[in-house]
Design a protein around this nucleic acid. Structure first.
Lengths: 238, 238
DNA sequence: CGAAGCAATCTGGTATCGATCTTTTGTCGG
DNA sequence: CCGACAAAAGATCGATACCAGATTGCTTCG
């Protein structure tokens, strides 16, 4: 076993234990390919599999206790989401993170999140809004960064669901994954996540008031803020 | 072999012969899975595989002269694009076309096509614009509907490429596929495709003049026109 | 006529073979 | 002795064939 393999296996093992309580051990009811997808995706997003590193199908399969087929299906899916790159008959790699990709993905995300916010003002149910509201209110700004990040992702997924458009939801989810990966990349250098929390409360308020224009504007602004912060961090070091 | 299988096989065989001149027979350089993806996708878009009909992996594999694995990978990809539905351990089916899906997909497409048009005004090269222009000019409005449809798709793909954003391009391509499928559904009832040709010329003109605002507006309007036409046809029969 | 059981069928997953690319090693020439 | 080219070994994904699990539909028996 090479050093790269050992590294991956070690990282994967820790991730497995972290999610082991989610799925029941003795019931392989869910599809192995789906399980593999979630596991590998999270390893990529959290950078536990570093960008550019080698991904070996057999090693992953052995680590997860499954064959190569579910792994392959998961990887093919991740290729479409641009988190993984496969060079035929050569190897599979975690996709590199290009700083220009931040701007490219946000170009797409910004109008779509705006659309999602507009639709949410029409379709979000009061109960959902209140649930999200209490979640946001229950979080103080001095939480752990990982927690704040998780809340951030939850809020966006909530927004996508409230838009009641499965196409929009799945497209935006993919882009959120890409953004989360970039965020993890500079996680220790990003200064203030609390501001995101405030902006999210503002978006939620606009949805509650059924103010489509305000919801769209604040949702877009939320991403612009994010982009500016990222650029400040990314280009200050460069 | 069931009747459904015979039907699919027959349809597939005709499609194979239709594209056989494209790929060289003796050189399996390209990946079989990619070839299978394109073949099956086009069969779905052109409705040669009817919505709701059964898709049998083995039958497709035999028809294409390959095993089940490439077919499986292609189908998994098509599931993500929502052209195919798989019920685990039960069967695979061509996704149904819901009339509401037209509005849902266009909701997403409209802002993104606008974005693509805006970006195209910045990044499109003169040579590309001229090539597209001569293609559009060379087509008269009384061409065969299938030809006009193909031109329409080519124009959109051209727009996506000129936007110089691979994320945007791949996302929009998926939505274009879905739209093309709906278009094929009502192909014999849709009245005037020539108007699309005129609108496309207008979009191209805006790009040539580097008028971002006009390009965005006309690109969006192009889709609104499409939506109105579709709705007129779809709901008039209902 | 209804329910239980069996057979057929299809996808999910594994193991294996094969093709291709990379790397290493060995040889030859300078 | 060193460098370059060539051949062979290693590694990885691509594809196939086979087996297993699950669901469906039919058949048969009460």
């Amino acid at each position: 076993m090479t050093k790269a393999e050992e590294y991956v296996e070690q990282r994967v093992a820790s991730a497995m234990s972290a999610v082991s309580f989610v799925g029941v051990v003795e019931t392989p009811e869910e599809l192995l390919a789906d399980r593999a997808y979630v596991l590998i995706r999270d390893l990529l997003i959290t950078l536990e599999i570093a960008p550019g590193s080698v991904i070996n199908e057999e090693v992953l399969g052995r680590t997860f206790g499954m064959g190569r087929t579910p792994i392959r299906e998961a990887l093919k899916r991740l290729v479409l989401e641009k988190l993984v790159v496969v060079y035929p008959r050569r190897g599979t790699f975690a996709a590199d993170v290009q700083i220009q990709d931040l701007a490219l993905t946000l170009d797409v995300r910004i109008p779509l999140e705006g659309l999602a916010a507009v639709r949410a003002t029409r379709f979000a149910e009061v109960a959902d809004i209140e649930a999200m509201d209490s979640l946001l209110k229950g979080i103080s700004a001095d939480e752990d960064k990982k927690v704040l990040l998780d809340i951030d992702a939850q809020f966006h997924r909530f927004l996508y669901q409230c838009a009641r458009n499965p196409y929009l939801e799945s497209t935006l989810s993919q882009y959120l994954n890409l953004s989360m990966r970039i965020l993890h990349l500079v996680l220790d250098r990003v200064p203030n996540l609390p501001i995101h929390l405030a902006e999210q409360k503002e978006i939620l308020e606009a949805i509650r008031e059924r103010d489509a224009e305000k919801a769209e504007a604040t949702a877009k602004q939320h991403l612009v803020t994010f982009e500016n912060e990222m650029n400040a961090v990314l280009f200050s070091r460069d």
